[in-house]
């Protein structure tokens, strides 16, 4: 059970049960849709930008516990950050969930450290990163659907 409880940490289960910022804002300035054809998960990320600052980030969609919690925790952590900081945080998060040894011990990751267990489940890395790829597409304002494949 150790690897399992490592993956399904209480924080992840809590965000899966009651996802934060799971809503469509009245006027998002940017949005993008992400799709994982492997499991059929879909997520839409909405961003309200104030210049280079992410004033609000929210999402809608359906997915597994990992992808739902990843979306919920991501949206919480990004409010007030700059676009550059969001990109840097994604890079650190990506290193964490893919088991890149340089990815651990990054204080900026905060609650995102809960996803450290994902690295031992290679089939689930895409579940954790889909919402981030979708966020990047929204920030780049590309109109197309982001796919994990």
């Amino acid at each position: 059970m150790t690897e399992l409880t490592d993956l399904y940490q209480e924080l992840i289960l809590d965000h899966n049960r009651s996802p934060r910022n799971c809503r469509r804002p009245v006027v998002p300035s940017r949005q993008a849709e992400g799709y994982n054809p492997l499991c059929g998960d879909r997520v839409t990320v909405y961003v309200s930008l104030d210049g280079e600052v992410l004033k609000d980030v929210s999402f809608e969609g359906s997915g597994c516990a990992i992808s739902t919690a990843a979306a919920s925790i991501m949206t919480q952590g990004l409010k007030g950050k700059s676009v550059g900081e969001a990109r840097a945080l994604f890079e650190k998060f990506r290193r964490l969930v893919t088991g890149d040894p340089t990815g651990d011990g990054e204080p900026e990751l905060g609650k995102l450290h809960a996803f450290g267990g994902v690295s031992r489940f290679p089939a689930r890395v895409k579940c954790a990163t889909l919402v981030w790829h979708t966020l990047m597409a929204a920030l780049n304002d590309r109109g197309e659907v982001v796919s994990t494949e």
């Binding site: 059970m1 690897e3 399992l4 993956l7 399904y8 492997l38 499991c39 059929g40 997915g63 597994c64 516990a65 990992i66 489940f121 089939a123 689930r124 579940c127």
Partner: peptide, 22 residues
């Protein structure tokens, strides 16, 4: 209401191979 992928990952920890998805 547990997503099939979460079910599949936990079953895999028990040595059980099932398919999850469409």
């Amino acid at each position: 209401d547990i997503h099939p992928h979460d079910v599949g990952t936990i079953l895999d920890q028990e040595g059980i191979a099932v398919r999850t998805g469409h």
